[in-house]
Nucleic acid binder design. Sequence first.
DNA 1: GATGAATGAGTGTTCATTCAT
DNA 2: AATGAATGAACACTCATTCAT
Lengths: 220, 220, 220, 220
Amino acid sequence: MLQKISDGSTKEKLLEAAKKEFMQNGFLKASLRTICKNAGVTTGALYFFFHDKEDLFDSIVKPVIDHATQILAEHFKHEDSLLSGSGPVLMQTLVHEANKKDSAKGDLSTALAIFRYLYSHYDEFILIVQKSQGTKWEGCVNSFVDWNYKHLKSIADSYCKSHGKKKIKPFVLRMVSNSQINCFVNIVLNIPSFKEAEKHLPYVMHYLVGGWCTLFDENI
Amino acid sequence: MLQKISDGSTKEKLLEAAKKEFMQNGFLKASLRTICKNAGVTTGALYFFFHDKEDLFDSIVKPVIDHATQILAEHFKHEDSLLSGSGPVLMQTLVHEANKKDSAKGDLSTALAIFRYLYSHYDEFILIVQKSQGTKWEGCVNSFVDWNYKHLKSIADSYCKSHGKKKIKPFVLRMVSNSQINCFVNIVLNIPSFKEAEKHLPYVMHYLVGGWCTLFDENI
Amino acid sequence: MLQKISDGSTKEKLLEAAKKEFMQNGFLKASLRTICKNAGVTTGALYFFFHDKEDLFDSIVKPVIDHATQILAEHFKHEDSLLSGSGPVLMQTLVHEANKKDSAKGDLSTALAIFRYLYSHYDEFILIVQKSQGTKWEGCVNSFVDWNYKHLKSIADSYCKSHGKKKIKPFVLRMVSNSQINCFVNIVLNIPSFKEAEKHLPYVMHYLVGGWCTLFDENI
Amino acid sequence: MLQKISDGSTKEKLLEAAKKEFMQNGFLKASLRTICKNAGVTTGALYFFFHDKEDLFDSIVKPVIDHATQILAEHFKHEDSLLSGSGPVLMQTLVHEANKKDSAKGDLSTALAIFRYLYSHYDEFILIVQKSQGTKWEGCVNSFVDWNYKHLKSIADSYCKSHGKKKIKPFVLRMVSNSQINCFVNIVLNIPSFKEAEKHLPYVMHYLVGGWCTLFDENI
DNA sequence: GATGAATGAGTGTTCATTCAT
DNA sequence: AATGAATGAACACTCATTCAT
């Protein structure tokens, strides 16, 4: 595994205490004093390991963001390769025919991988999504929306071109991207365990694909 | 109109300065001192008009929340009355057939009313949605999701019953509710003017209805 | 009666609210804001009737102090007149023989009069004794001790002179004076009703006279 | 000695400045700002050493209260052991015969010890007795009165029982207790030096014992 | 590596008081 | 006689950060 087991070192104790404090109070209201006290360590020690308050937050959150980014990047890369390589047939797999097959949107494996990872770093996920106001990560989810948007756009444009339809409006794609990301975030936020989320996932995908396919209907 | 035009009174100056400061820094980081300074007023004056920092925030935000709530309440009431009064035929209007008609989801009038109102109180809307961390309104959007969920559930249950289908899972409805609210919020957040939003609205509705109708498909 | 019945006028309402606030919080912690709010009156009104915070406190407390002072003054004057007029015989009444009679220290009438008055102005008494820190009255009880000391001294000196004994040391007399006043204050503070205090009074006097007479014993 | 000599450290400077400020203004009116300024230290420094304003006051006053309490406790314990161990004879020493001997109330050693201690912590004593309003110590003297009352009661009850007299009324004993404590406090308050107080002490004891013995007179 | 001490600007809030109307 | 608005200094307290040791 990539993650070191907590070894009770000062740094680990600080990170643990910080996580708890950030979870309870959010970045802005969190108190370094409290963190140090709970870690059983002096303020000076904190500043030996971390440059400042935000750096401390970063140290907790960054690895998770990076890893999630990587999973997504691989997923996008994979879909892109399918797309560029194999023309209209595959396109249907990705888009229109998706809801007629039991493995909607290609397959669920990427979604499951992401979920599995996020649930195993639940606190960090919460920190990123709900407690990062005041840090550079407060727009983190939006960045993912942007990214996903670009991805969706390339798929949609490609599909429309090959089917002789006019392009989906960027605004709509942005909204869809946002909708997708938001659904995923919401699942993790509202469903306590990976196991349950796993069970729900097909319904979610079905719903999202339903909306997605609507975009390519003739009558609009 | 219900809203008084700013008359340059101390209270108005304070509210104006507060709005600006809250917009810039969010509730937690906002400084009352700065607000007073920018309003050209002493700290004491602020406390003559407002009970405390949160009361100041409230005074800006509450009327907008109340009004939006009222619009929604009327909308829900209206749909409920259609539902209870007229059986399966209308149900189709509300649900399944929606995407086959140009007035999806009944009609767009409620959505437009809400949008028109929110755009005319843009700053307040931003404050509620993005700057209210640390106040009692930080979960405000979630409350709307909950509310909408109850509404969707009654519609869905009623429809399923009359069509002999098994109920939609609560979790799915919750997700859909969240998705809908999130889309609307996102439009206001990302589209600068009401005029543009108005143009986009049909696409949005089409997308949302698409997802919604998927729920009632046979094959899941 | 000297005391006007509260007529619900603004001034009366202020005095009433002030009394309550001063009782609860003492002079220093008392808030004029709170007083005005409870009186249902604005701050400005308060400053129409009273010069400042201390003046407000004074207005409540001064009449009671004055009246108590007057009662005492009459008592002292009366005892002085007995003293100057009638030589050694009366002296015994006042002092040494006191504890052999059932009406110790002359009689209890003065004490009863004072008690009756204080109990009928209980709140004001508490204010003077326990809540006046920060006002010019915070040493009020000490003034009474001083005054009583002068009185005791004249009695003691006169007695000693006429009995050929050497004078009681001023320090001792001061202590005795303090002891007496303190006992009286303590009774009012610890015994809730005049009726009960009246019952206890003889024991108190017996105790005080016991100590007082000790001063004139031969063997010291 | 238990007390460290002021070493000019920040904490010592703060305590010194605080003592001065509390003496001048009492707890409530004392300003932490002023204290820090006079200590030549920033506000933050104060809060490194003390939890809050009251903790600062406590740190000055608590050791003295504790020590005085201890001295008294030992004294009470000693008297109790005499009482339980040796019957009526000693009882006379403690009570009735006290005024016929030159070492009234057993001996003066406890009183002297207390005085010596209090005079060597004069400022702290003043703080406790006169400047503690608003802190948990404002009723401190009353606690001592209560304590002494319980002690007096056990002595008095024991004496009355062994002499076949009916018990002294609790109210009277409470008053006597108050009177004794009050006298002692008053001495320290009014007599500037231990040396003088020492000279006066026999008179004080004589007076107090005089009153005390009166309680056991036949004719009341 | 880590401590303990200290900084100093900043926080929201309360205060008694004033004054034009 | 009384209001409502406003003052401005003061309050206790917290903050992230620094640094000599």
